[in-house]
Design a protein around this nucleic acid. Structure first.
Lengths: 226, 226
DNA sequence: TTGACAGTCGTACACTGTACGGTTACTAGC
DNA sequence: GCTAGTAACCGTACAGTGTACGACTGTCAA
């Protein structure tokens, strides 16, 4: 008999690590990561703050848990596809997930031990690359390169103060341009002006860089050296 | 007469925004970002915690300040070089700086308003690209791509628990491989085993991806479309 | 019936950022 | 030389944090 087995329908079911971590994720999503305190999370679960410590060693482990939950949302590469389509799919998925949980990218940076979902993901990506003919060395290169791009892009996106192209145009006009006098920042001023007038959408940026990287990796795919 | 002028050699010179932010940077470097509290910083400056608030609006602004100081350490691109050498130089410099201040990458992600050093840097990079013949659109692509790569790489590096190739080999043997049973993670296990035996150094990874991106950007440099 | 034990939680401690008000030290105006 | 004004400094206090500790429950095994 497991300690986590149901106790009955009346009252709330007992706590479990699963429930604690899931509620923490929900709270971070709805009210921001800074609202996630042990007391507040306990409250959300109709429990005292100290009760949480029976299911999670400390807050660090709780954060590890929600980061891994976020990781689990990223689609694994479909390995029957050709490798480029598979890598594109999982990169696009990763970006979507990280845009949905903007606080996650910050958390990931401060965590050292990868969780199970993280490991599973890396395994699937490596498998896909190796089956496509990448050497171990080249697969490692591709992994670092693609992950760096995806995480870096997500990090930059997370620190943008606007959500879509429309908001961007307004913001450039009202906030950025006034801070970019043409004498001091001629090129940035020029770019901001131009981009505001055209139909520029930063969301398209991701596709450009991703395609460029995938194309270039294809050229190096079977080379033994680098 | 300025309020920040020297008061004499005896006792410590008076506080200033400059001194406060610099000492904060020093403290974050020497004892980690989590040791940087207002009380502790005041102590470090022979001052009370509340005195700092006369030079900095709040802690957020203090963090903005030290992030911008870190930014100022990054070398600007030498625009008389050919553009690839210039971009390589500033990317390598950025990686070095972010590796020297591993906590900075986390902070950057949570800050929305770019500081003056950040703006100056972006201006110089954009100038270099535009003078090399990049269109505004292409220069924006290149900016996003290169920055994403550099920040993403730094972010991954910052969450690695080892410092050099030697430590890595030990760590793979003692920590990673035991967590990667070949039945569950055949490919990761294979990679870890292989890399441990060869002279693999993650520091070389940065060069590979950077060269690939610069090479591919050169091909797109004069294309009008994307 | 008794013992063990897993789960819950109230209290307490050391810490955080910072609002508020009081105290200095220095400068400008007369 | 005196006084008013002000910029800098800082002690105290408050609401919040993570979590160590010990007490209290309920359930199951012997």
């Amino acid at each position: 008999m497991d300690a986590n087995s149901e106790r009955g329908a009346e009252a709330s079911t007992p706590l479990s690590r699963e429930k604690v971590v899931r509620q923490a994720l929900a709270l971070a999503d709805s009210e921001g990561i800074e609202a996630l305190s042990m007391r507040r999370l306990g409250q959300e679960l109709n429990a005292g703050a100290m009760s949480l410590y029976h299911h999670v060693r400390n807050k660090e482990e709780l954060l590890d848990g929600i980061v891994d939950l976020v990781f689990a949302e990223i689609e694994l590469p479909e390995s029957q596809d050709d490798w480029r389509a598979a890598m594109r799919g999982r990169a696009v998925s990763a970006r979507e997930v990280l845009a949905r949980h903007p606080w996650a990218i910050t958390l990931m940076a401060s965590r050292t031990a990868p969780g199970p979902a993280n490991l599973r993901h890396h395994e699937a990506v490596t498998a896909c690359l190796r089956r496509a003919g990448f050497s171990i060395r080249m697969a490692t290169h591709a992994n670092w390169l693609l992950d760096s791009y995806v995480y870096g892009f997500a990090l930059q996106e997370a620190s943008l103060p606007f959500a879509d192209a429309e908001e961007l145009a307004d913001m450039i006009h009202e906030v950025f341009l006034p801070q970019l006098p043409p004498e001091e920042y001629p090129y940035l001023n020029e770019s901001a002006t131009e981009l505001m007038q055209s139909d520029y959408d930063p969301a398209d940026e991701f596709t450009y860089g991703l395609s460029l990287i995938l194309h270039a990796l294809e050229r190096d795919r079977l080379s033994a050296k680098p």
